[in-house]
Design a protein around this nucleic acid. Sequence first.
DNA 1: CCTATTTAGTTAGCATGCTAACTAGTTTAA
DNA 2: TTAAACTAGTTAGCATGCTAACTAAATAGG
Lengths: 158, 158
Amino acid sequence: MTSSLPFHETLDLSLCGSMGRVFRLCRDAVTLAVEPLGLTQSRWTAMIHIHHLKQGVTQQELASSLGIEMPSLTRTVKQLEQQAIIVRRVDIDDKRSRKIYFTEQGLLLLDALRDIMAEVKTQLYAELTTQQLDTMAHGLVQMEANARRCISYFSGDK
Amino acid sequence: MTSSLPFHETLDLSLCGSMGRVFRLCRDAVTLAVEPLGLTQSRWTAMIHIHHLKQGVTQQELASSLGIEMPSLTRTVKQLEQQAIIVRRVDIDDKRSRKIYFTEQGLLLLDALRDIMAEVKTQLYAELTTQQLDTMAHGLVQMEANARRCISYFSGDK
DNA sequence: CCTATTTAGTTAGCATGCTAACTAGTTTAA
DNA sequence: TTAAACTAGTTAGCATGCTAACTAAATAGG
C-alpha cells in the first residue's frame, strides 16, 4: 500500500500482503508503546487474551484464542512465567493441562498495559468510522473462512 | 475471529490480531497451492512484485514494494538466484546496486504461478463484494498511515 | 581533489510463527 | 481390565520478519 497503484490494482496485487504489512506496523506501534513495561508483542498479546478469557485458562484454550499453535505459545508462556507475570498450575482434574493465573505483579503490569493500549488503539483507529471498522471485521471473518476452506481443499488434494 | 465475540468486542480486543491471523491463513493457502512449483511464501511474493515492477528492478525498489527491509529481502533473492529463477547484474551506472531479471526458466515458472494465484484469489475473495474489498483496502491504507504516525511518535519520544 | 556523509547491499543474530516427533496423562472399546 | 487412540504440553529445528553493524560505492562540502 506504500505504492501508488489504484485500489483495484492493489487488491489484485495483494490485499493479503497489505494486511501483513499493516499488521506488522500496528503490532510494532503497540510494542514500542509498551516497551517501558518490558513486554514483547507475543507476551502482551497473550496477557490481553488471558485477561479476556479469565484466569485459570489452559494453554490449549489460550492458543486457540490467539489463533496460534501450541508450540508457538509454549515459548511465550514460559517467558511470562520466567518474568513472574503468570504462574501455571497443573489441573487437578486433568493432570495433562496446566492452568494459567496472573501473579500480583502480573496484574499490576496488566493494568499498565491496558492503559497504554487504549491510548494506542485510539490512534490506530483514528479517522476510521465504526462502520468502516465493522466492514473490515466482517471482511476478515469471511476471508478467514475462505482461506480455511481453500487450505483444506489444497491439503486434501494430495 | 475464531472466537464468538460480537464484532465490536472483537474489534476492541484486536482487529490487529485478526489481520495477522487472516494474513497468515491467506498466505498459507497460496503457498500450499503453489507448493508443486517449489516456491515458498517469500519467494512467490517477490516474484509477483518483480513482475509488476518490471525486470531490472533494484533490490531497494523491490524491498520497498514488498514493504519489508533490505536484510529480509537479501535472503529471498539469494534463494531465487540459487534456484535459477532470477539473475542479478551489477548496475553499470551505480556499482552498488544490483538489478534483477527473470531467467527463461523463471519466466515459465512465473506464468504457472500467476495461473494458480488467479484461481486461489477467486476463492479467497469469494462472497466479498468489490465495495467491501474497497472499504477494506481504504481502511488498511488509513491504518497504515496511523500506525506509522504512532510509531514515529513513540520513537521520537525517547 | 580529499574527507564526510549517504546509499545499496550483506552478515549475524533475535523474535515469532510453523510442523514433526516426542512424553505423559485420559478415554474408549474389546 | 488392558490395549489403542486421543489430547495437553514440550522440544527441536525451519521460515520469515526485524535491528545493528559492517563493506563498498557514490555524492557533497571544503
